[in-house]
């Protein structure tokens, strides 16, 4: 067996051990070394050289990146998640003919969809979705993400929040927690438009806060333009700042008519 492959395998075993121990510091360290070692394999994307060890190399590399993705979820590092996922993706898309597909594939794809949802990158979410084969939509992991998106779009926020109970995979919890915050932001945005003011109790209820303390913290952090007085939350400031532009309808109509007249004259 190739010495490099042996080295990677051994290192990966250590990584997995640390992973099970939830020793994330050691994991990150080992992962970094592993990635560097992986660059030495010529069979990996994007070179895809047909070496004798290609199958083992690809399989182990995929395994490593899958672990990396999960690790990034556990360390709650979204950037690392994105990085690792993109590096993992070629293994799913381009190597189908060489190695058997991984059992982890759909959970991880689903995670990624969830991440996009959390980051409110709806366009990319749909791009990713379109790239998936029709059959995969039946997979519970993907289905979960798709349903979440639908509820999210409909404004059925309660369903979004209750989805936390039906996660297909325990790694999803982290993102669903994050999703709650995304939902809150959405609600805040809507109420701003919908109401001039709300009583603190109502606001607490709508925005899903249990104490006044939390509410005022949220307001100072995210929406400093809101105002709390007389036991109410006033959104006016925001309204004032949004100048309602009147459409100069009459002027436009007159102009268009005169153009039409001129045109007729020319012809």
């Amino acid at each position: 067996m190739d010495p490099k492959l042996v080295e990677v395998t051994q290192l990966f075993e250590r990584f997995k051990a640390a992973f099970v121990r939830n020793d994330f510091g050691a994991c990150t360290n080992l992962l970094s070394q592993l990635k560097v070692l992986l660059t030495k394999f010529p069979s990996l994307p994007p070179s895809y050289q047909e070496t004798p060890n290609a199958v083992q190399e690809l399989a182990i590399a995929r395994d490593i990146y899958e672990h990396a993705v999960v690790l990034s979820v556990k360390t709650e590092d979204q950037d690392a998640f994105e990085r690792d996922f993109f590096q993992l993706k070629p293994f799913y898309t381009d190597t189908c003919g060489i190695i058997p597909s991984s059992p982890q594939e759909y959970p991880i794809l689903g995670l990624n969809l969830l991440r996009l949802l959390v980051q409110n990158r709806i366009a990319e979410f749909h791009t990713e979705l379109e790239l998936l084969p029709q059959s995969s939509l039946e997979n519970p992991c993907i289905k979960h993400a798709v349903e979440l998106e639908q509820s999210f779009m409909e404004g059925a926020y309660n369903r979004v929040l209750s989805a936390r109970q039906t996660v297909p995979h325990d790694t999803y919890v982290y993102f669903l927690d994050l999703l709650a915050k995304t939902v809150r932001d959405e609600i805040a945005g809507c109420s701003e438009k919908a109401y001039d003011y709300l009583s603190i109790n109502d606001a607490k209820k709508i925005l899903m806060f249990s104490t006044d303390q939390e509410l005022s913290e949220y307001i100072t952090e995210e929406h400093p333009e809101w105002e709390i007085k007389n036991g109410c939350v006033f959104f006016q400031k925001a309204k004032e700042s949004q100048p309602c532009k009147e459409i100069p309808a009459l002027q436009l109509i007159n102009q268009t008519l005169s153009y039409a007249r001129e045109l007729e004259r020319i012809i």
Binding site: V36, P46, Y48, D79, E82, R83, D84, F85, F86, D94
Partner: peptide
């Protein structure tokens, strides 16, 4: 034989902290 379909993996790798990966 696998065909490269995207460079996104490599671009993502650019953000890796380790210089060897970059």
């Amino acid at each position: 034989m696998a065909v490269v379909s995207s460079a996104s993996g490599l671009i993502a790798m650019l953000h890796e902290p380790h210089p060897a990966l970059k």
